[in-house]
């Protein structure tokens, strides 16, 4: 089955123009109609686009870096991530509840939205495509260790893996473990180690690049 052999309800619309799918022209036509009808305002649309493109994982990384250096802030972040974000002047987004989950030596969290794509967009930017993909949404539940391995994270057998399923009302942000050897770094340097993927739980925070050559074990014959 090709998947394209069924009666499609929009079969009479152009397939695509240039590099864009047919949906592109369709979305623009929909905007035009809704504005003409007075259903929506162009300013609201522009504002929302500006907001979307201004969101990035840097905000989430600031939360994590502060939590790494300030245990009391970490407690507040774990208790109520919305308030903690507001405390740093960050926009936690419209979601009523944002929950921060701490990875430790014994517990690792992995975030998925099995039903769709719920994600703390305000703090992490738009979700990556793979987060919204059918394989990730399925396998994060049925084979989470396999998924982590695919992302390059080998989790020891004795580490408990907790998979959390986001909803429109509760969104999750992972606090990755602070990498070893980062005691001398300041908050800004630390936040540069906190990647988007580490806050979804598919990666660890980045390691600090060392300038010295790697140490090899002594040659033995």
């Amino acid at each position: 089955m090709t998947g394209h052999d069924h009666e499609h309800e929009h079969a009479h619309t152009p397939i695509a123009s240039g590099d864009e799918p047919a949906a592109a022209a369709r979305v623009r036509a929909l905007e035009e109609l809704l504005v003409e009808k007075g259903a929506i305002r162009v300013e609201d649309v522009r504002q929302r686009i500006d907001w979307l493109v201004s969101r990035s994982p840097a905000d989430g990384a600031r939360l994590v870096a502060r939590a790494w250096i300030d245990p009391e802030f970490k407690e507040r972040l774990l208790a109520d991530a919305r308030s903690a974000a507001l405390e740093l002047g960050l926009d936690p987004g419209p979601s009523p509840v944002v929950v921060a989950l701490e990875n430790t030596a014994t517990v690792h969290h992995l975030v998925v939205c099995t039903l769709c794509s719920c994600y703390p967009k305000a703090l992490l930017g738009p979700p990556p495509d793979w987060y919204k993909s059918l394989p990730y949404r399925s396998r994060a539940v049925s084979d989470p260790r396999g998924v982590l391995a695919e992302f390059g994270v080998a989790l020891a057998d004795d580490v408990e893996l907790r998979v959390v399923d986001s909803t429109a009302d509760i969104r999750y942000l992972v606090i990755p473990r602070r990498p070893a050897g980062t005691e001398a770094l300041d908050e800004e340097e630390l936040s540069a180690l906190v990647t988007r993927d580490s806050m979804i739980g598919v990666a660890h925070a980045s390691r600090v690049e060392t300038m010295s050559p790697p140490a090899y074990p002594p040659f033995s014959s």
């Binding site: 979305v27 623009r28 809704l34 929506i40 609201d44 649309v45 929302r48 686009i49």
Partner: peptide, 8 residues
Amino acid sequence: LADALVGA
């Protein structure tokens, strides 16, 4: 734009 239309 699709995302923003939903937002609006």
